[in-house]
Design a protein around this nucleic acid. Structure first.
Length: 937
RNA sequence: GGGCGAAUAGCUCAGCUGGUUAGAGCACCUGUCUUACACACAGGGGGUCGGGGGUUCGAAUCCCUCUUCGCCCACCA
């Protein structure tokens, strides 16, 4: 017992009562502790410490998906950022140089909409204000109220590097956006296109394909008759879902093989209502089997019709204005009857249908379910509209992004999204990047109206035409918000300055954490921009988490009123409870279900676990006291009891489970994930559970209970127990820190000092070391006897309704395999079960038996239990036992049949066969013991 | 229309390359204020792993098929 020399043999003084209040109050701890982390700079990254820069650490980088600058925190942000914070905190402890780079997005349409609404409330508008003033006003709005969401993230514990906070509409970001645009322009990857795009008449801007979302809608199919010019006896019936567009029709197309219409090809039809003559044309686009087999062609208001129109060199009259009111552009005004001019498209639809009915052109109206595109920002039905826009040619950019996933440079989790990603990229279409908005990065293209020279893209503003010296004019449009977002992983690190320290140290990064909704909007485009501008992918893992939903599985939203405010949860139960509940309840890619009407119930897992952890800590720290403890390394192996070995073994198991659930951290030296690695790790729920299970179901439920007498006895063995206790709890807190950083730190800071004077890991748990498993290989198997015997005795006590407080006599009959350890353990088992446990061979008095795995028997004489039982109970018990014998016998027969099967014993893995043999033995013993038991009754 | 996925306990989900009596959390039932914790402790009930075929000594796990849900994409007016 030399290892405890010099330590007092009296119990260590207890903690002062006020140091650990009986209940954990998160509010007393969290904001103060967060401020200390900030002051100490625990989450500030240093490029110089990174191995790529000659430092000693591997970088671990996550760029935060930038929330909209005007957004307020909702539970989806909470989930997203908690996941990132868990990964970040884990790697920080594991010794990586960690960079979690936060920021916000200027969110073009969204922010402009908010300010426009304000202006409307003031009786003003952006047009009234003018561009410059509007932008200034919006900038000021962002300045004063924006970015609040980042502060809110702090209150849930997000340990981002706030010294690097970025915003997409700052000078450096603008420089990156301009540089990217100009490079693509110069490479011919940005071009001006004249085509039908998605137009939001409320936001008054074009949208990309991704921004125009499909909604299934119950609409109608209108069948309309167009008469042949000069021959009222002949006609063609067309079918359309948008009758109002007929004013812009320039042809009717039929399939060339459709014999119904062959004789009408080349003839002219008269458009009802405006009398315009249009030809009947043949085009493969028309499906003879659909509708009437005749399609009205409106090139300016339908992308397909536009294509048809191009093939047949047809005119493109625009019959709606930017606000989607019936109105002709230029000569097309003549196509719109005066009484319809200026009428909203939906109103116009009704009126046109009535007018068609009046002139006898309306054949029928059928219900028709179809998908209609809506603006992703304001949900207005999008209008296809012919206009000039800037596009990015995507096919060349998509190529390396596809290769990256195919070759394992990037993995997407859950894996099924890889197929979706590949599917989308293979059919990728060009990206409309110009928006008719004012809030955003202005398109860096300059025109000369005077000499009309080719428009130039420029990194610096052009004020005068380089050709003729006349004043140059910048393009009015701004770029799609996502055109700055797609540069986020590089622009935040200093690109286009390729020598920027951060870019060199932290790019490429590691993981991107987001929801699947923006896989195309953002994730894949970042990958493309990474390859295009830096020659490498921005991360090796895309982690797509689920969505937070209510109990009806509806997405939480403001309009449904079913949201949960994370800050409410923080106030009620603390950030740790919020974090724990979300992480522990979140399978890979699985939605998190929470009940907004019952926060108490929804966050019970977090709250319950925190309370339990607090009580474990309170009890443990009180029992251990304040005297310094030996580090585990100073304890001689033979001083460890069976229980000590067991709990240390379980700790190793928990560490291994946590590491397996989280890792692998990054791909190996090849830089590519192997097929096996692709699906490994990132199981945050499994990791959290490994920690919870250890600290609750092993440390608290078993070890803490068994160690009480040893601590009370004092002396050298008490010091061993103290050392083991503190070691286990210390490591458990380390394991749990990434999920619940506040409470773990609070408890950890109260652990007694180490007797050798060594530091435990600095001032903060969040920068202490991630646990390592012990190198020794001794197992804690012997302790299983305690657990099995205890469970058996408890079961018998319950079965026979023995009052919890009553002591009983019990006998342990050890099998040879347990003969050595049993004598050391009976006291422990007795203490756990309120039994006076003796150790000898089985008598033949009527008894309750339990056969433990391994063959040791627990025997409790029935005589002492008899008075608790009625005759009825006894009969019932006998019947129950008989049934159990039968069931066990059946199992046994099954196992024996299997073992006598030659194919099984020869082909199955040896350990499986051994398992079956052990099972046969245990079952046989059980049948035997149960039979004796029923006889004794 | 194309692509993908899922159906396992009342609910939400684990169950890896087929092998002891299919697990967890919550919910449920019984008992307990056992001097850290009733936000706890102890014990318990509950699943023919969606249906049907097949491969195998052996299938929740692999194959086929049917049914039902879900997701992504898409120019059928």
């Amino acid at each position: 017992m030399t290892m405890t020399d010099g330590l007092p043999n009296t119990p260590s003084p207890a903690l002062a009562a006020d140091e650990l209040p009986t209940t954990y109050r998160a509010a007393d701890v969290e904001s103060a502790l967060y401020a200390r982390w900030q002051a100490a700079g625990t989450d500030v990254a240093s490029a110089a410490r990174v191995d790529r820069m000659g430092g000693a650490r591997q970088p671990y980088t996550i760029v935060m998906p930038p929330p909209n600058v005007t957004a307020i925190l909702h539970v989806g942000h909470g989930l997203n950022n908690t996941v990132q914070d868990v990964l970040i905190r884990w790697r920080r402890m594991a010794g990586d140089e960690v960079l979690w780079l936060p920021g916000t997005d200027h969110a073009g349409i969204a922010t402009q909409n908010v300010v426009e609404k304000q202006l409307a409330a003031e009786g003003s508008s952006r047009q009234a204000l003018g561009r410059e003033a509007f932008v200034a006003r919006t900038a000021q709005f962002v300045e004063t109220t924006g970015g609040e969401i980042l502060n809110q993230l702090k209150s849930i514990g997000a340990s981002a590097d706030w010294t690097r906070t970025a915003y997409t509409l700052t000078e450096p970001m603008s420089a990156a956006v301009t540089e990217a645009f100009v490079r693509l322009f110069e490479d011919g990857l940005v071009y001006r296109g004249h085509r039908v795009i998605h137009w939001c008449p409320r936001c008054m801007t074009s949208l990309s394909d991704e921004e125009a979302e499909f909604n299934d809608t119950q609409g109608a199919m209108y069948h309309i008759r167009y008469h042949v010019a000069g021959d009222p006896s002949r006609s063609i019936v067309v079918a359309t879902t948008r009758p109002e567009t007929l004013l812009g029709d320039v042809a009717v197309a039929v399939n060339p093989t459709d014999e119904r219409y062959t004789d009408l090809l080349g003839r002219e039809l008269v458009l009802p209502l405006n009398g315009v003559h249009i030809p009947v044309i043949a085009d493969d686009y028309t499906d003879a089997a659909f509708g009437t087999g005749a399609v009205k062609i409106t090139p300016a208001h339908d992308p397909n019709d536009f294509e048809v129109g191009m093939r047949h060199r047809l005119a493109t009259p625009v019959i709606m204005d930017a606000e989607a009111r019936m109105n002709g552009v230029g000569e097309a005004i003549d196509r719109v009857p005066p009484e319809l001019r200026g009428v909203d498209r939906f109103e116009a639809r009704e009126r046109i249908v009535n007018m068609l009915r009046d002139v006898g052109a309306l054949v029928k109206i059928e219900p028709h379910a179809h998908s209609v595109r809506h603006c992703y920002r304001c949900d207005t039905v999008v209008e296809p509209r012919l206009s000039d826009q800037w596009f990015v040619k995507m096919a060349p950019l998509a190529k390396p992004a596809l290769e990256a996933v195919r070759t394992g440079r990037i993995r997407i989790m859950p894996e099924r999204w890889e197929a979706v990603y590949i599917n989308w990229l293979e059919g990728i279409r060009d990206w409309n990047i110009s928006r008719q908005l004012w809030w955003g990065h202005r398109v860096p293209v300059y025109y000369c109206d005077s000499c009309g020279t080719t428009p130039k893209a420029s990194r610096t503003p052009i004020t005068t035409c380089t050709e003729c010296g006349a004043p140059a004019r910048q393009d009015e449009d701004v770029l799609d918000t996502w055109f700055s977002s797609w540069l986020w992983p590089i622009s935040t690190m200093g690109w286009p300055n390729e020598n920027a320290d951060d870019l060199k140290a932290f790019y490429p990064g590691d993981v991107l954490v987001t929801a699947p909704e923006i896989l195309f909007f953002w994730v894949s485009r970042m990958i493309m921009s990474g390859y295009q501008f830096m020659g490498d992918a921005p991360y090796h893992t895309v982690y797509l988490h689920g969505t937070v939903r209510d109990m009806q599985h509806r997405k939480m939203s403001k309009s449904l009123g079913n949201g949960i405010d994370p800050l409410d949860v923080v106030k009620l139960y603390g950030a740790d409870a919020l974090r724990w509940t979300m992480v522990a309840g979140m399978g890979l890619g699985v939605d998190v279900l929470l009940d907004p009407t019952d926060l108490d119930k929804s966050f019970a897992p977090g709250r319950n676990f925190l309370t339990k952890l607090w009580n474990i800590g309170r009890f443990l720290l009180t029992k251990v006291g304040t005297d310094a403890v030996q580090p585990l390394s100073a304890i001689a192996p033979d001083a460890l009891t069976i229980a000590d070995r067991w709990i240390l073994d379980r700790l190793d198991g928990a560490i291994a489970d946590a590491n397996a659930a989280l890792g692998p951290v990054r791909p190996g030296p090849t830089g590519r994930w192997t097929d096996a690695e692709r699906t490994m790790g990132m199981r945050l729920d499994a990791y959290a559970d490994a920690g919870r299970h250890f600290v609750w179901n092993e440390l608290a439920d078993w070890y803490l209970e068994t160690v009480k007498p040893r601590l009370a006895a004092g002396g050298a063995d008490a010091d061993v127990a103290r050392a083991v206790l503190v070691h286990c709890f210390d490591n458990a807190l380390r394991l749990l820190q990434p999920v619940i950083p506040f409470i773990t730190h609070t408890l950890w800071a109260k652990l007694p000092a180490l007797a050798d004077g060594s530091a435990r890991g600095g001032e903060f748990l969040c920068t202490a070391a991630w646990p390592d498993a012990r190198s020794t290989a001794d197992s804690g198997d012997a302790f299983e006897l305690v657990r099995n015997a205890t469970l058996a005795i408890r079961q018998i006590r319950n079965e026979y309704k023995v009052k919890p407080g009553r002591f009983i006599e019990a006998t342990l009959v050890p099998a040879t395999s347990d003969a050595a350890s049993a004598p050391l353990l009976i006291e422990t088992i007795g203490a756990l079960t309120r039994a006076n446990l003796s150790l000898h061979t089985a008598g033949d008095v009527p008894s309750a038996h339990q056969v433990l795995p391994g063959g040791t028997e627990v025997v409790i004489a029935l005589a002492q239990l008899r008075d608790e039982l009625s005759a009825e109970d006894t009969a019932k018990e006998a019947a129950r036992l008989t049934a159990e014998i039968e069931a066990t016998q059946k199992l046994l027969d099954g196992v024996r049949a299997k073992l006598s099967n030659e194919s099984f014993t020869s082909r199955a893995k040896p350990e499986v066969v051994d398992g079956a043999r052990a099972q046969e033995r245990d079952l046989a013993q059980k049948v035997d013991a149960l039979t004796r038991k029923v006889e004794a009754l």
